[in-house]
Amino acid sequence: MRIELERVTHTFGEGSTARTVLRDLTLTLTERRIGVIGHNGSGKSTFLRLLNALVLPTSGRVRVDGLDTARDAKELRRRIGFLFTDPDAQIIMPTVAEDVAFGLRRSGLSRSEVDRRVRDLLVRFRLDGHADHPAHLLSGGQKQLLALASVLITEPLALVMDEPTTLLDLRNAAMIGRVVANLDETVLLATHHLELLEGFERVLVFHEGRVVADAAPEVAIAAYRDLMGREP
């Protein structure tokens, strides 16, 4: 997968309340494991949302495999799945199995084929015992697994994850980390759990809307710590 950002700037609001969260960003990403770190408010989330056309650039262009996010959002979202921080906000259907099946509702697949794929994913994430349970009664870690299963059901080529472990306890965060590490898909992961970035090919450090470091994990994380040390 090839992601290209061309002089991307993004500004929220207008007039006196305007706030620029990304400044003149130019990047090309082709790696299979890309980490994104930085303080809250550094532009990480907006950057990730650009890739799935949840946010469009105020100026500049974002292209994924040649698709322009401003024009081809539909095709783009078929290729890139998005995992949010709060699993509660992304569970749409009342029960676990129904939520996983949601992404296939207009796929044209037969009911039995949909059921088979849903079951396979639930087994893979050890949620098969909860198939008919109300989704909102799962534990936090299970909810995030469910959210991940619901995204994977449409077989995206890449997954964009916005701090998927921030609301989880350490044990569940480590569990999600292991699941992510074993995914075949391309992964772009923003996180404050820096240990999840072990084995990643490339890590971007965001600060005040710019990429201030872009390197292998150890180097990028050292730069991030250095940045924190320099702030009051």
Binding site: R19, N40, S45
Partner: peptide
């Protein structure tokens, strides 16, 4: 709708 209303604005 101005910025500041939505979630995760950054």
């Amino acid at each position: 709708r101005p910025h500041g209303a939505g979630p995760h604005p950054a």
